[in-house]
Nucleic acid binder design. Structure first.
Lengths: 257, 257
DNA sequence: AAATGTGAAATTATTCACAGCT
DNA sequence: AGCTGTGAATAATTTCACATTT
């Protein structure tokens, strides 16, 4: 995509790598903390440490935005905050709707970090008529019937789906039809969207499963190394032993699913 | 890390790529759905569609686990469910503690997908003495003072942090000292952990910021293409125009932070 | 005929290491 | 003297395309 046609002046070429985009919010958060402590400048080394990445990566990331540092000195904190904010589109206001006001939806509505940085919860939507009118986080819940009108009246382009998995695709379709082009999906299901619509997903269960994979791996290595097991590791090793039912065992009746 | 020493038989070599591990839960979910519908076999094409990836990637991913398919036929659903579950370590029970029982912590405790697939909420922990003893999702909340004992008594190796950002590092340190080696962090802060401890983070604000970046990009392209704007896109374009304050503007007083 | 499994190519991301600026 | 910015080197990931197996 966007194959470099070898004729544009190298300056500020389009296309920041996706991996870099994903880290910009991290840098921004670290910078904001420095700004609040009135720190005027910061080196790539310091900022990288605060953001939990290595400094070469950080410098490379910033190089895609432009040359915002000063050699021998570092980066001006305020200036960088502004440049990254602008790059991320946070200098404008983003009205957001949350659909599905259960436990999670309510938690999201109450989440402070949501409101900061340009995002504004414009409306809460739920399918339960009993919820309608009830305020959550100070915002009255509206009924799904009015979804399209709410989207359009508020010029919403970002939707958050916090419904049960079964309702997610349907809600997604309606959001997209009404003009939403970015979706943050908390429902544990794959959403099908047309070209041009971005979906990002947050899935607790997936994150835990990834951790379990590494945890299992660690348990295996411990067993091999066979040192004294600190803390709760002994119990973990015991679990491991109990679960190991021979290599490549044949298919059992049914799995935990 | 774990540099291949070039002497092990290629069969089932160690080290599944991280990107593959991150997709296994996705495949597992799709397979579980098929299993519930009693679908006996599935092709890489079909399964890939259900999981939202392309089929070559899926086949490559599975090739790291072993040869579990049948050429000309596809994959046996039950068998694959089992193999992936085993690979992810889901054939064993993982007791988990959630620390910080605010809105989000409560939502997590109530989250059904949590309990499925081998994860069990062993305890809820909060720093507020007023919460102690109160049941959330049927589990009584315990006080932070007892954190170490709770971890050890339950053999917990996975901890979920849902505290405010300010408390997260301290909670993390105590969890790790007590024997936890995997942490799922919902607090918007970078956690420092010793070697051997895995941390995964979930950050709503970061996800929204990434969406905003792409959203902004789209608005720019629309303005360039200048077609009829469907739905709420017109309003979005207007926002864009309002926010564009010339290229490379100088530093403003303060940013939204 | 159909679909897997996989080398090889292409792409993307990270890290190194140092020239160049302040 | 210190620290950025970036080519070049390396590593990881994705995609292609097809030989191989059922």
């Amino acid at each position: 995509m966007a194959t470099g046609r070898t004729h544009r002046p190298a300056t500020r070429s389009r296309g920041i790598p996706e991996a870099t985009v994903a880290r910009l919010p991290l840098y921004l958060r670290a910078l904001t903390a420095l700004s609040e402590r009135s720190v005027p400048t910061v080196s790539s080394e310091e900022l990288a440490a605060a953001a939990g990445v290595n400094s070469a990566k950080l410098r490379k990331d910033f190089s895609y935005l432009g040359s915002y540092g000063t050699r021998g000195v570092g980066y001006d904190v305020e200036y960088l905050v502004y440049q990254i904010s602008r790059e991320l589109g946070l200098t404008q206001d983003w009205p957001v709707v949350i659909v599905g006001i259960g436990n999670l939806g309510a938690a999201l509505a109450n989440y402070g970090g949501f409101a900061s940085r340009g995002f504004r919860v414009a409306a809460l939507i739920d399918a339960d008529p009993a919820m309608a009118g009830k305020p959550v986080a100070g915002i009255p819940v509206q009924h799904t019937d009015d979804l399209e009108k709410i989207i359009q009246d508020n010029g919403v382009s970002i939707g958050v789906i916090a419904t049960p998995a079964g309702a997610a695709q349907q809600v997604c379709d309606r959001l997209v039809a009404a003009g939403v082009t970015s979706i943050l999906n908390f429902a544990p299901t794959v959403l099908n969207v047309p070209e041009g619509v971005d979906v990002r997903k947050v899935d607790l269960s997936i994150e835990l499963q990834i951790l379990a994979f590494h945890e299992q791996r660690k348990a295996g290595e411990e067993a091999a190394a066979d040192g004294a097991l600190p803390g709760a590791a002994a119990a973990a090793a015991a679990r491991k032993a109990a679960a190991d039912q021979g290599p490549d065992g044949d298919v059992p009746a049914v799995m935990p699913a």
